[in-house]
């Protein structure tokens, strides 16, 4: 009963979301070509909802994946310093050439993508020197790198002009404002790739979730699978962060909610987590469009405001038992 209600509400959110936003639409005009409503609906709202759906799915799925691979319920790709790397890249991009386009991409987007990829490779390279079994050390390494990137970002801030700094601050808050279908298509491709690979390894993940030693004993090549999944998920996160900036809490909150509703093993939760992650971000984005301040509310703030208290509630609920 709860499950079907959840799905109906989710589908409702996905369908109705494009109708809400700063500009109120004239329902009769939406299908009239070249009307304002038609333009706003099909070139702004629909691609944005699609983009948010893919973005939320990627964030939630990566959260689930990292929590499983690193056996830490608080783990998200951001904890490993990938978003800090991306933000630092964006900061350098903004400093070097705000507004410059290269192959159709902004300097900021390219640099933050490179920043995210760089931070992943640096992490994986340093991980080679670690004892393969100690995942907590990798987590610690991620946090250390993250702090380093943040300090480097402070240098960028310190030397930046007010305009550069304002752009950078907005980037760090996350935004889903996009125009047209280029970004949704790119991210959609990444989404399909990520979901397919993770789904292909669903049974391996089911075993790894018991314990990594147990998985090895049962014939799972834990190291290989961890590397493949870490790489592909990091790539997806890098692409996402370079377009929308870091968006927190989705990867943390959604997998936990899905676990609460569906008490089942991870192989049954992959598609559900991806779907509800998408719905959650579409919902948050709808709120960010409806609540108007001077401009729309940054999406990262909405996810944090909704996700934060909910997460505290979850932790207290768990500790009460």
């Amino acid at each position: 009963m709860i499950k079907s209600t959840f799905i109906i509400i989710s589908l409702g959110i996905l369908i109705l979301s494009p109708f809400f936003g700063a500009i109120s639409l004239d329902i009769d005009d939406i299908l009239t070509l070249d009307s304002i409503s038609n333009n706003v609906f099909f070139s702004l709202r629909v691609p944005r909802v699609i983009f948010a759906f893919f973005a939320g799915g990627i964030l939630a799925l990566c959260g689930l994946l990292y929590q499983t691979l690193f056996r830490n319920p608080l783990m998200t790709p951001y904890t490993l310093g990938i978003s800090s790397g991306a933000v630092l890249g964006a900061g350098i991009g903004i400093k070097l050439g705000l507004g410059i386009l290269l192959f159709g991409f902004t300097f900021v987007g390219l640099f933050s993508f490179v920043g995210a990829i760089f931070s992943i490779f640096l992490l994986l390279y340093l991980a080679k020197f670690l004892n393969s079994s100690s995942n907590n050390t990798l987590l610690l390494l991620g946090i250390a790198l993250s702090l380093f990137y943040s300090s480097a970002l402070m240098v960028v801030f310190y030397t930046g002009s007010p305009i550069q700094n304002d752009t950078l601050i907005r980037f760090t808050m996350g935004s889903l404002s996009i125009l047209g279908y280029k970004e949704p298509l790119m991210l959609g491709f990444m989404w399909v790739l990520l979901v397919s690979v993770v789904f292909a390894y669903r049974y391996e993940l089911q075993i790894i979730n018991i314990s990594s030693e147990f998985a090895t004993l049962k014939g799972v090549d834990v190291k290989k699978i961890t590397t493949v999944l870490l790489f592909i998920s990091s790539l997806a996160i890098a692409m996402l962060v370079s377009i929308s900036g870091p968006i927190g809490f989705v990867g943390l909150v959604v997998p936990h909610i899905v676990s609460k509703i569906y008490s089942t093993t991870i192989n049954h939760k992959i598609l559900k987590t991806t779907f509800f992650g998408g719905v959650f971000l579409v919902f948050c984005d709808t709120i960010s469009r409806v609540i108007q301040t001077q401009s729309e509310l940054p999406i990262g703030i909405v996810t944090a405001f909704l996700g934060g208290p909910f997460f505290v509630y979850l932790i207290i609920l768990k500790e009460q038992k």
């Binding site: 979730n209 018991i210 030693e213 147990f214």
Partner: peptide
């Protein structure tokens, strides 16, 4: 003894 981290299996 089995160290099992999966609450649902």
């Amino acid at each position: 003894k089995l160290e099992n981290a999966d609450n649902f299996i």
